[in-house]
Design a protein around this nucleic acid. Sequence first.
RNA 1: GGGAGAUUAGCUCAGCUGGUUCAGAGCACCUGCCUUACAAGCAGGGGGUCACAGGUUCGAACCCUGUAUCUCCCA
Length: 881
Amino acid sequence: MEIEKTYNPAKAEQTWYQYWLDKKFFKSVPDKRTPYTIVIPPPNVTGVLHMGHMLNNTIQDVLIRRARMLGYNACWVPGTDHASIATEAKVVALLKEKGINKTDLSREDFLKHAWDWKEKYGGIILEQLKKLGASCDWDRTRFTMDEPLSDAVIDVFIDLYNKGQIYRGVRMVNWDPQGLTAVSDEEVIHKEANSKLVYVKYQIEGSNDFITIATTRPETIMGDTAVCVNPTDERYAHLKGKKVIVPIVNRVVPLIFDEYVDATFGTGALKVTPAHDINDFNLGQKHQLQTIDALNPNGTISQAAGAYVGMDRFACRKQIITDLTEQGLVEKVEEIKNKVGYSERTNAVIEPRLSMQWFLKMDTVSKPALEAVLNNDVKLIPEKFINTYKHWMENVHDWCISRQLWWGQRIPAWYDAQGNTVVAKTKEEAIAKLKEKNSALNIAEVKQDDDVLDTWFSSWLWPLTVFDPNIVKRGWDKANEDLKYYYPTNDLVTAPEILFFWVARMIIAGKEYTGQKPFTNVYLTGIVRDKLGRKMSKSLGNSPDPLDLIAKYGADGVRVGMLLCSPAGNDLMFDENYCEQGRNFANKVWNAFRLIKGFTVDATIETPQSSKAAISWFENRLSEQLEIINEHYSKYRMSDALMTTYKLVWDDFCAWYLEAIKPEFIDGKAQPIDKTTYEATIQFLEALLKIMHPWMPFITEEIWHLITDRAEKDCIIVANWPSIKTNIDRKQLAEFEVSKELVTMVRNIRAQKQLSPKEQLEIIEKSDATHSYFDNTIIKLANLSAYSYTKDKVEGAFAFQIRTTEFFIPLANNINKDEEIARLTKELEYNKGFLQSVQKKLANEKFVANAKPEVIAIERKKESDALSKIKTIEEQLAVLG
RNA sequence: GGGAGAUUAGCUCAGCUGGUUCAGAGCACCUGCCUUACAAGCAGGGGGUCACAGGUUCGAACCCUGUAUCUCCCA
């Protein structure tokens, strides 16, 4: 059979993914085995695969595939999130292109468009995940707005309302004037901006004096209902009891005194606009100030402002500065840097706004969730996030859960014309409840709340409702078989950015409705940045399309590339070079297979000693390294686990083992290989393929089937993870390390003396021994004619040491005395310096008195080794004269 | 302004109980090789005042204090 020289990933990827699907290897149903479960962080239904998803989902797939091989019942639940604001914005934009305004549509018509859109374009991202090799149980695919899941969201709202945890009230919220909705604190991104700090003069009533205030928001002047200064600020003490006149609208407002004001900022005088700043709002409450809302929901100036009505807030800001300047009321304008909040979803500047919203009280429900992390019941990886988590959970604010949108779960609150409110699942139930409050109820006037719930108010139930949407209604005791079996899940892999949005809230919901944590380990990935450290973004155009990368380097290559450079919790400086390295690794594996497949087996020939030794060594080496790999996995050190695998395959297997056992060519003909060595080699290859499989699922499955014809379900995806041999011979491993050094030394000498690798050399070891286990392997690897032992020095040969042993290579015409003297002198100096430092240490009484005995023993060994080396070198120098 | 973390080779990172002259890996780099598995390769090599300044210790990349720079979170 002809095997191609380079690995071609495209075909293998297509073939095997379909094969796995057909054989239902990803499918999981509860059985006697221990489950291993991951629920996917559901990507936005509108989303397309980006580098962050790649990283995230590759890690999940590695964990799932390894668990499957370890014999767990591995279940990875996929799905998408309805992402209310992002999706609604997208649908609105699309309708606009068709000339349809959302405001012209009824709620029902809009939702119909939205669902049409979702059915047509939603979930592309899940198809893309398949290209990556994601082994999700696709039969379990869920969407956060699937009817049963939505139902559960409503159940939770009703339940928490009945428990008194949910309330409605007027609060200052983060208003997105573009999305026309409130957003939570976590959805506001604070960015540094260059702003103008305007110093405006307000006249003191009944005088020609002015008080100057500094503001970055002059367009809210029309909403001012006080001016405030610090009571300790002597500059303003004489103004006590006075009133001031707000410019533009000429409103007379009180001058108030409050500790809140920072006397050192600006002029020390603050304009108070209770409707447009949270701190001003608090001041307003405290001093019982009037509240004037000078802005409309869309960010234009409101009727109530009394001036500039209808003008956009930013246009108004400019205009008002011009107008005030003309009136001589602007003292100066300073350029400053301040933080401005932007909407995560629409990127509009957030406006603090007073409005009627629904809130969830966080103080009591968050306590068990904080404890779960502090007592390590839920482990955060890396641990450094525990502090951040603690800080947030201890300072948590009530959660604004209503959104002024249509796409999402509609709040199940109902009102009558008299302002009575009830919470109920259906209109009928609501009417019944309202009747209790209002005997004269006019049914025609009963209205449901127009708002929907925050998306996170549905995704916090994700690990519960993907398994059992009835959990809220029926309770943990009556949970279905799936939930009982898979929950709590094992690992959650997500970005630290949503630690509070999502992770904390899932723990809250889990504790509330099952009394249990939703997952045991939370692996927090970093942000994927470009190699300059910039966040990858569409606008910068610095984000490669993951599918292009897969086409170019193969899915296996990209997976390896991503994970080579991503320790947990660290941002990842992505560089295509890593994918290239991944692709090269796949090709290396491919060629190792090609070599082995090309062997001709002859059952009659005996196994050479060199191969026997190599097999024994690699058997030990494999177990030794597998132990380390398992250890890395158990600590979620993914890059380390991968790098150890990489070196085991490339260095140990390809560079040392295969070179040691591969048959020679005689007269241009490849010699056959003995059966024992061949079979051992195939076994090693299979074990290595298994260890590589979680990282490189496609190529390993491809080779697995090319090695031999296999039964229908004999696939590497369900093969057993290799076991570690019980008695690893570490002494032998150490011995081979010395042999490797010897081989390297010989190669080095060849390079220095410009000797062909084909020219055979001879090695003589100065030792009392007559042979050792790896002699023949060394002969093979270093291309020697002989390896012999002597008790005496060999004159006129090239001499060197490995550790404390002396070796000679007879090189009749190739010894340059001066060069040798220089080399040996340098080595002598180094060893003398080393000896000196060791002896200094040993001469130190305090060291000998305080250091651990093992440490002292090591130092003594170093001393004696150095002494013997020095002696040897001095002898060699003496011989050279 | 408050909090958390980081700073080790050109780059990305290890260094997990303080103990091999002040250190490791991968990539990149340099030199030599198209050697019948692989040039997507092979062999060999160079490269670091462990951010800076003090301190603790027989001994510090590691522990402590301060400084600088960067990142993130919260207000």
